[in-house]
Write a protein that binds this DNA or RNA. Structure first.
Length: 676
RNA sequence: GAUAAUGUAGCUCAAUCGGGUAGAGCAACUGACUCAUAAUCAGUGGGUUGUCGGUUCGAUUCCGACCAUAAUCACCA
């Protein structure tokens, strides 16, 4: 292709928004990550140096509390989530060059660097503000962690920022009977010094930047509203306890998660540069960099990416994004994803039932460069995949492959390079490339499918099934088939960014190296192809139903009341029956020399005495126990301990320390009785 | 409540940047064909472009009001 050979290879860095480490990836996330991946694969196919990076966004109060609740460190919690996220993306054929974490050394260094530069340049302010504070947990409460009665309509159990019932909005300090959602305590007002980023210093820069082709028109309009409303200073600090990075020179103050989240793009790239010789961080991020930086984001986080982020970069001497690509939300059958309808589909749930390339193709087929919401209509989804992919595209190969295979030994004809249909398919390359480049994926598909239509018409008009029966016309069939397979190859290149795995199967069938965009002009002739095997199956609507059904079940399970300490795996009665629980009388209790936690108990089971070492010293004095009845596991295998043999366990409840309570049978129970 | 959006055939979407007799794919129907994962090809039907009003020789496209939908904001930004 002449025109792109004139183009210099570009250096392009691409990012998707960093998924928050507090939950699973769902198909809404996939809308973004798939369109990013398609764009990235397209650029790579064209021969550019295109690097895509992502990471988990790991900081903030919700993560901290979630980890506490699950009894693990935040570090362990986010590490596990990252594994899950990465696996989901990989299985959807989303190929990041690097998938990092915002909780990384690179990110800490870059966050500090950017902050220090902003601070030195006078872009940071400090002032004291008053916020609700949980006196029990000793932490400041974000709005969402305060609940109470709506000051307007009096509805109970409303969040700190607005009322679900009457729609009123207010500040959390206005709530009646406010309660901390963390501890249940009544919050108090407390002063604290906060750090602010003076966004207003960048107003004129931003006004120019946002009208300079870096954002979509719809976004630029939205930004005008925000400019008109007036920019505000941005509160970038949070007080300890907070899971994040401490602000340099400000002990006990942490960067608000949204400060280090976008810096995570740079950190992930930095991490990659350190692993690769051919990448230089400064080439991409210096203020005068000629490389491109493209961010793909949802419309909900436009503010952060088009105001704060460019301002932070500008103020700290880095380059600004080339383009911020915002997309709308994913709806299913025209409405918001709903857990109860089963349309809130997790990435994993989808993968349990359907081929990822179905969804990749469907997204491709309907995406535009606009910020409008994207509707996944399930009926349309089935129709679109089956008709476009199977009936039109793959069908071209499927219907001529048998001629080539059976009648011509798998050998293609010679001299088809000038065939008008091949020329036409090749001629669409630049138009399609432009659609890709501008994210008009839907238009690209329309263009591609119209070529597929022409190929199918061509086969019909040539009637190879008739010609093959006549010796004089039979050789023409080899030409017709070769033309079709060449068009098929070209279509495969056009579609490859969306359906890479299918393309790989096509490459195996055509007996060619991995196809590149430049292969569009290479014509396959006078060579052999392999036996045709179908590259994709029709969608079975039953599988789609099964997926929705599983989504419903998940939702039902999730909405059931959850125990903070989840139940162990279910057991059979026979498992329970193995445990012999007995009522016992504590005849003697004494301290154990040298033991920190243990008491030595003599337990009477109606004549038989058992000796048990119990870790309840922190909660009970020996004299309080003597003469009491309690319950023990009597058939536990005796265990030799440092201080002697323990012949069972007494049952106690509680988290430990002083909070430990042994069980007491009700009045009338006698030592030795079986508990069942 | 405020703001900017969106509302086009049964379904999903198009309609050149500041107006000139509404297009495509799928579905439906009719016919052809049998090479192909019952696919494909030819053809037909189907829209007073959310409603009402205005500007204009003429509006899906401009203006106003209303209705519907989802979104953003109302110091999280």
């Amino acid at each position: 292709m002449s025109s792109e050979q004139n183009n210099q290879p570009r250096q392009i860095l691409v990012t998707s928004a960093l998924p928050y480490a507090n939950g699973s990836i769902h198909i809404g996330h996939m809308l973004e990550h798939i369109q990013t991946d398609i764009w990235t694969r397209f650029q790579k196919l064209r021969g550019h140096q295109c690097i895509s990076v992502c990471a988990d966004d790991t900081h903030g109060t919700p993560i901290m509390l979630r980890a506490q609740k699950e009894g693990v460190t935040p570090e362990d919690f986010i590490a596990a989530t990252r594994e899950e996220h990465l696996k989901d993306f990989e299985d959807f054929l989303v190929e990041y060059d690097n998938y990092h974490s915002t909780h990384s050394e690179e990110n800490r260094e870059l966050s500090e660097l950017i902050y220090n530069r902003l601070n030195d340049a006078g872009h940071i302010a400090k002032r004291t503000i008053s916020q609700l504070f949980d006196p029990e947990k000793e932490m400041f409460l974000p709005d969402r962690f305060v609940k109470g009665e709506c000051p307007k309509c009096g509805s109970e159990d409303q969040y700190g920022d607005n009322c679900d019932n009457c729609g009123a909005t207010y500040s959390p300090t206005e709530l009646k009977n406010p309660k901390s959602a963390v501890s249940g305590a009544t919050p108090i007002n407390k002063d604290s010094e906060h750090y602010f980023f003076k966004l207003t210093n960048f107003e004129s820069m931003l006004k120019t930047w946002t009208r300079d082709g870096h954002v979509q028109e719809q976004i630029a309009n939205k930004l005008d509203e925000w400019f008109e409303a007036g920019l505000q200073e941005w509160d970038i600090s949070r007080d300890a306890p907070y899971f994040g990075f401490e602000i340099p020179g400000a002990p006990g103050k942490y960067f608000y998660v949204w400060v280090d989240a976008p810096i995570g793009y740079m950190a992930s790239f930095k991490n990659l540069c350190d692993k690769r010789d051919d990448l230089n961080f400064d080439d991409y991020w210096n203020a005068d960099s000629a490389a491109e930086v493209h961010h793909f984001i949802g419309k909900d986080i436009v503010y952060f990416h088009t105001l704060f982020w460019p301002a932070m970069l500008h103020g700290s001497g880095f380059r600004k994004p080339t383009k911020v690509h915002a997309h709308g939300f994913l709806t299913v059958n025209g409405t918001k994803m709903s857990k109860s309808k089963g349309t809130f589909v997790k990435a994993r749930t989808y993968l349990n039932h359907l081929d990822p390339e179905y969804l990749r193709y469907y997204f491709m087929a309907k995406l535009t460069s606009k910020v409008d919401d994207f509707d996944l209509n399930l009926e349309d989804f089935v129709a679109r995949i089956n008709s476009d992919l199977v009936n039109k595209y793959i069908n071209i190969a499927s219907r001529v492959a048998s001629f080539i295979g059976k009648k011509f030994d798998g050998r293609l004809a010679d001299d088809v390079a000038d065939h008008p249909l091949i020329k036409e398919a090749q001629g669409a390359a630049e138009t399609i490339a432009e659609f890709y480049e501008n994210k008009q994926y839907g238009r690209a598909i329309r263009e591609i499918m119209s070529i597929a239509d022409k190929a199918n018409k061509y086969v019909d008009s040539e009637e190879p099934w008739v010609k093959i029966k006549d010796e004089t016309t039979a050789p023409q069939v080899q030409v017709v088939s070769t033309v079709c397979l060449n068009v098929f190859k070209i279509l495969t290149i056009y579609l490859k960014p969306a359906i890479p795995a299918m393309a790989e199967k096509v490459e195996a069938f055509l007996n060619v190296e991995p196809l590149q965009w430049s292969d569009i002009s290479e014509v396959l002739q006078g060579r052999t192809v392999n036996k045709f095997k179908p590259m994709v199956q029709r969608i079975d609507p039953k599988k789609l139903e099964a997926m929705i059904e599983e989504g419903k079940e998940e939702a039902a399970a999730a909405s059931a009341p959850q125990l903070a300490d989840p139940l162990k795996e279910e057991i059979e009665f026979s498992d329970f029956d193995k445990i012999d629980l007995r009522v016992v009388k504590i005849v003697k209790a004494e301290h154990v020399e040298g033991a920190e936690k243990l008491l030595k108990l003599q337990l009477d089971l109606d004549g038989v005495t058992k000796q048990v070492f119990a870790g309840i010293k922190s909660a009970y004095a020996p004299e309080d126990l003597q003469g009491k009845l309690t319950v023990m596991v009597a058939n536990l295998k005796p265990r030799k301990m440092r201080f002697g043999v323990s012949e069972g366990m007494v049952l106690a409840a509680g988290p430990g320390g002083k909070d430990l309570w042994i069980l007491n049978p009700d009045e009338g129970a006698q030592p030795g009785m079986r508990v069942k």
